[in-house]
Measured scan of single mutants.
Amino acid sequence: EALDLGTCKAKKKNGEPCTQTVNLRDCEYCQYHVQAQYKKLSAKR
């Protein structure tokens, strides 16, 4: 099993862990959760 392949560390809205696979060398979170957090933070400017 590849060491750099894993699952997203974020949690879904219902509290369950996200099940998307990610490349851990790039980021610990999937694209969906990265974009969601970016939108959330950019709205606070």
Rank of each mutant, 00 (worst) to 15 (best):
Y29F: 09
L3I: 13
Q31D: 14
D26L: 07
K11G: 05
Q35I: 05
Q31L: 04
Q35Y: 03
D4M: 10
C27E: 13
S42D: 15
T21H: 11
T19W: 06
Y38E: 08
K11P: 12
K40C: 08
T7K: 15
Y29P: 02
V34R: 08
G6N: 05
C18A: 02
R25Y: 02
T19Q: 08
D26C: 11
K13F: 06
G6K: 14
K40Q: 15
C18D: 02
S42P: 15
P17E: 11
K13Y: 07
K13T: 11
Y29K: 08
L24S: 12
S42N: 14
A36K: 08
D26H: 12
L41R: 08
D26F: 04
C8L: 01
K11N: 10
C18V: 00
L24Q: 12
L3M: 13
G6R: 12
N23T: 13
T7L: 09
K9G: 05
G6W: 02
V22D: 05
P17Q: 12
K12D: 10
G6M: 14
L41N: 11
D4A: 00
Q35N: 11
V22S: 05
L5R: 12
Q31F: 02
A36Q: 03
H33P: 01
K13V: 06
K39H: 13
L3Y: 05
D26G: 11
C30K: 00
L3R: 11
T21C: 05
L41E: 15
H33L: 01
T19A: 11
Q35P: 09
T7R: 11
C30A: 02
D26Y: 05
A36N: 09
K12H: 09
K11W: 07
Q31P: 08
Q37D: 15
L24A: 14
K11F: 06
N23A: 11
V22H: 05
Q20M: 06
L5H: 07
T7P: 03
K39L: 00
Y32C: 10
D4R: 02
V34L: 10
P17F: 05
N23G: 11
T7E: 03
C8F: 00
E28P: 15
C27L: 10
T19Y: 07
L41M: 15
A43N: 00
C27T: 15
K40N: 15
K9W: 01
Q37H: 02
T21L: 08
E1Q: 07
C8H: 00
Y32F: 06
E1W: 00
N23R: 12
K40R: 10
C8I: 01
T7D: 01
L24H: 12
A36G: 11
Y38K: 11
G15S: 00
Q37C: 10
N23W: 07
K40L: 06
E1D: 03
T7G: 03
L3C: 00
A2L: 02
Q31S: 10
L3T: 03
E28H: 07
K9S: 11
R25M: 09
C18S: 01
Q37R: 12
C8E: 02
C27F: 04
S42G: 12
Q20I: 04
L3V: 10
C27Q: 06
V34F: 07
L24E: 15
S42T: 07
E16Q: 15
V34A: 07
A43D: 10
A36Y: 03
A36R: 09
Q37T: 08
E1S: 02
A2P: 07
K12I: 06
L5A: 09
S42F: 05
K40Y: 04
N23V: 12
T19H: 07
D4L: 03
C30F: 00
K12N: 14
C18K: 01
A43E: 15
E28N: 15
E16S: 15
D26A: 13
E16D: 15
K12Y: 05
H33D: 01
P17D: 11
K40F: 04
Q20D: 08
T21A: 09
S42W: 03
Q31A: 13
G15T: 12
Q31H: 08
P17A: 06
A10S: 14
G6S: 09
C18N: 00
V22Q: 08
L3H: 10
L41K: 09
H33W: 00
L41G: 12
A36E: 13
N14A: 07
D4C: 03
K12G: 05
Q37A: 10
K13D: 15
K40M: 14
R25P: 12
A10Y: 09
E16V: 03
C18H: 00
V22P: 02
H33F: 00
L3N: 07
G6I: 08
T19L: 09
V34S: 12
G6D: 10
T7W: 05
K9E: 10
E28F: 04
L3P: 01
Y38W: 09
K12W: 06
D26P: 03
G6P: 06
C30T: 14
L24M: 10
Q31R: 12
D26T: 08
A43M: 04
V34T: 12
L5P: 12
Q20L: 11
D4K: 12
Y38G: 15
D4G: 02
Q20N: 11
V22L: 07
G15A: 01
Y32P: 10
K9A: 04
A2K: 14
A2F: 05
L5W: 00
D4Y: 03
A10I: 03
Q35W: 02
Q35C: 06
G6Y: 04
E16M: 12
L3W: 04
R25L: 05
C27Y: 05
C27K: 12
K12Q: 10
C27S: 13
K11L: 10
K11V: 08
Q35M: 04
H33S: 01
Y32I: 06
K12C: 00
L24R: 14
S42L: 06
D26E: 09
G6L: 09
C30W: 00
E28V: 09
H33M: 02
E28A: 12
D26Q: 08
K9Q: 11
K12F: 06
E1K: 15
T7C: 06
Y32S: 15
L41S: 13
C27G: 15
R25G: 08
N23L: 07
Q20S: 11
D26K: 12
L41V: 10
L5D: 06
A43H: 06
K9F: 01
A43I: 04
C18R: 01
E1G: 06
C27V: 14
Q31Y: 04
G6H: 11
Q20T: 14
Q37G: 14
T21S: 11
N14D: 00
C27A: 13
A2D: 13
L41W: 09
C27W: 06
A10G: 11
N14I: 01
C18E: 06
K39T: 14
Q20C: 05
H33Y: 01
A36V: 11
Q31E: 13
T19N: 10
N23M: 14
H33N: 02
Y32N: 05
E1M: 02
E16L: 04
Y29M: 08
P17M: 04
D4H: 09
D4I: 11
K11M: 13
V34K: 13
D26N: 14
C8T: 01
A2T: 12
E28C: 10
Q20E: 14
A36I: 07
R25C: 02
Y29G: 04
Y32R: 08
K40S: 12
T7A: 13
Y29L: 13
A43Q: 09
K9Y: 01
A2E: 08
K11A: 06
D4E: 07
G15M: 04
L5T: 13
L24D: 14
Q35F: 04
P17I: 04
Y32V: 15
Q31N: 08
N14P: 01
L24C: 07
C27N: 06
D4V: 04
Y32W: 11
K40V: 09
K11Y: 04
A43W: 00
N14Q: 06
D4N: 04
L5M: 04
S42R: 08
N23H: 05
H33I: 00
Y38C: 14
K9V: 07
T7S: 07
L41T: 15
S42M: 11
K12R: 14
L41Q: 15
V22M: 04
C30G: 02
K13H: 04
A36M: 11
K9R: 03
Q31I: 03
V34G: 14
K9N: 09
K40G: 12
A10R: 04
A10P: 00
S42K: 02
T7Y: 07
Y32L: 12
V22K: 06
P17R: 12
L5V: 09
N23E: 13
K39G: 12
V22I: 01
E1I: 00
V34P: 10
C8G: 01
L41Y: 05
E16P: 01
A43C: 13
Y38A: 14
Y29H: 13
